[in-house]
């Protein structure tokens, strides 16, 4: 090859393999998402995580607390299903963090970063795969909940709303956990710390038990934090109760969190080493 040929070939390659642009970002994300899904479908632990865990939790809580709750005039199945849904989404996101940390550990992430593919593709692909997993989880959890007596009182729209809000929540959770994986990098470290965001936000929420049941000094946190609002909005959707206030709070929180997490995650991704 002569020098001119080479220059021309380089120019041509640069043009053909250009990584910028939205359609590129979407196409690349889907390819990586597909790969993540293949991986997920081959991990036995994921199957228990998706199939068994949410249902075991739902059953255990229902059996243990339904009677006591009905003494407080709470129909516990209606009350409980939203937070069990969100908990399942938290588990989904926690698993996404482990997988991302695994990719960092094996060098897969570096390989992708050195390829002419969209900068958004790795995170986008992660999100796509875990949204699919979230949908599968919902498709199993909601029918079981129905068998236990859970009902959508406002028809099809409330079901769609419930699913969309849940998926939005999952998006935020996966992005947030991606941050954790990108920051900590070591899989075992990530594995032992995924519990840290989960514990306070999910458990110190009004999802399992109304805020009034908490000690007074804890109540402000319980009332204001995002998981409580999203759980309340999901309950309102299912029960066909006034929706506007909890929904606005939830969506507001989720948008704020998503933009914060998203920008930080992309920033970390660009400079990870």
């Amino acid at each position: 090859m002569t020098a001119m040929d080479l220059q021309a070939r380089a120019k041509q390659l640069v043009k053909v393999r250009c990584e910028a642009g939205l359609s590129r970002a979407i196409a690349d994300s889907f390819i990586i998402g597909q790969r993540n899904l293949i991986r997920l479908s081959r991990q036995p632990a994921v199957i228990t995580g998706v199939l068994v865990f949410p249902i075991v939790f739902l059953t255990a809580f229902l059996l243990a607390f339904e009677r006591s709750m009905s003494a407080q005039n709470i129909d516990y199945i209606q009350y409980l299903v939203p937070i069990i849904t969100l908990q399942a989404m938290f588990f989904t996101a926690m698993n996404s963090a482990s997988n991302l940390a695994g990719d960092i550990d094996t060098g897969m992430l570096q390989r992708c970063r050195a390829m002419p593919i969209s900068r958004a593709a790795v995170l986008g692909g992660l999100l796509i795969a875990y949204l699919v997993r979230a949908i599968v989880t919902l498709a199993i959890l909601l029918p079981v909940a129905y068998l236990y007596g859970f009902r959508f009182h406002a028809g099809v729209f409330s079901i769609i709303g419930y699913i969309l809000l849940t998926l939005f929540f999952t998006t935020v959770a996966v992005t947030g956990y991606a941050l954790l994986a990108l920051g900590l990098k070591k899989p075992d470290l990530v594995q032992s710390l995924v519990i840290v965001p989960y514990a306070p936000f999910l458990l110190l929420s009004s999802g399992f038990s109304p805020a009034e049941n908490f000690p007074t000094w804890l109540q402000p946190f319980v009332v204001i934090q995002p998981v409580s609002h999203v759980a309340a909005a999901l309950r309102a959707l299912a029960d066909s109760e006034p929706l506007l206030v909890p929904l606005l709070w939830s969506v507001g929180w989720l948008i704020v969190l998503l933009s914060g997490f998203g920008f930080t995650a992309i920033w970390l991704y660009r400079r990870i080493s």
């Binding site: 607390f65 006591s68 709750m69 003494a71 407080q72 032992s192 710390l193 519990i195 514990a199 458990l203 110190l204 399992f208 038990s209 009034e212 049941n213 908490f214 000690p215 804890l218």
Partner: peptide
């Protein structure tokens, strides 16, 4: 991790279910 989590669960359950189980 393995001690902290049950401790946390214990605190949370006390906080959120005490009034439910022993009103």
């Amino acid at each position: 991790g393995s001690t902290g989590f049950p401790i946390f669960l214990m605190l949370v359950f006390t906080a959120s279910f005490a009034k439910v189980v022993v009103p």
